[in-house]
Design a protein around this nucleic acid. Structure first.
Length: 187
DNA sequence: CACCAGATCCTCT
DNA sequence: GAGGATCTGGTGG
């Protein structure tokens, strides 16, 4: 399949992160390594708001670590959390540094064996690290981008509160495909 | 330089 | 449900 031909344009990301988080479910995350493509269906996301969200990395302003959040919509924000990396998509950007965290994917192509039911493991499966921070994911020549696929995947969306945070933990900003097995475990 | 908090994950119980 | 492993960036002295 030619993933480049169905790449999602920047306009898609230039909206409220809550909308983008829901719309990203069922889309394809494509990681290009040399001639090889690793592809996963996005099954779980979380939205982090541009302002007033105590759990978001933009809450205390711009730093060297989170500067990618202030890029144009459609760029990657990769940050490290203990031994792992987490992968975000920037929404709106600039003076509205919102983002969408990719929490889980369903293996589609080139990903073997590994269970992808958490944001740290997604990044292991796709060899995502800090060098991809700031990548333009609307460019088909990038090492990582998101594509629509040939047809829409039919699915229902379940909404719940975000996982693994201590601030604003009750906000209903986590979304996943209903009944899909590739989502984070409840703890 | 020291300290600390953090968008995780795994192993028990 | 609780606790530990283990690392990076931010903050303050």
């Amino acid at each position: 399949m030619n993933w480049k031909s169905t790449i999602i344009p920047r306009k898609f990301y230039d909206r409220d992160p809550v909308i983008v988080a829901q719309q990203l479910l069922g889309k394809f995350l494509v990681r290009k390594i040399g001639d090889k493509y690793l592809v996963g269906l996005i099954t779980e996301t979380e939205a982090y708001l541009p302002s007033g969200d105590a759990a978001a990395h933009n809450f205390k302003g711009k730093t060297k670590r989170n500067e990618s959040l202030y890029k144009e919509a459609g760029h990657a924000y990769v940050h490290s959390m203990r031994q792992y990396f987490l992968f975000d998509v920037v929404t709106e950007g600039a003076d509205k540094p919102g983002s969408v965290l990719i929490r889980a994917i369903e293996p589609i192509e080139g990903i073997d064996g590994i269970k992808t039911d958490g944001p740290g493991k997604v990044c292991i499966a796709l060899s995502i690290n800090r060098t991809l921070d700031g990548t333009d994911i609307t460019n088909p020549e990038s090492e990582i981008f998101i594509a629509q696929g040939e047809k829409d995947i039919l699915h229902e969306i379940t909404t719940s509160s975000r996982i693994g945070i201590s601030n604003a933990k009750d906000m209903p900003l986590r979304f996943h495909i209903t009944e899909n097995i590739h989502v984070s475990k409840k703890r």
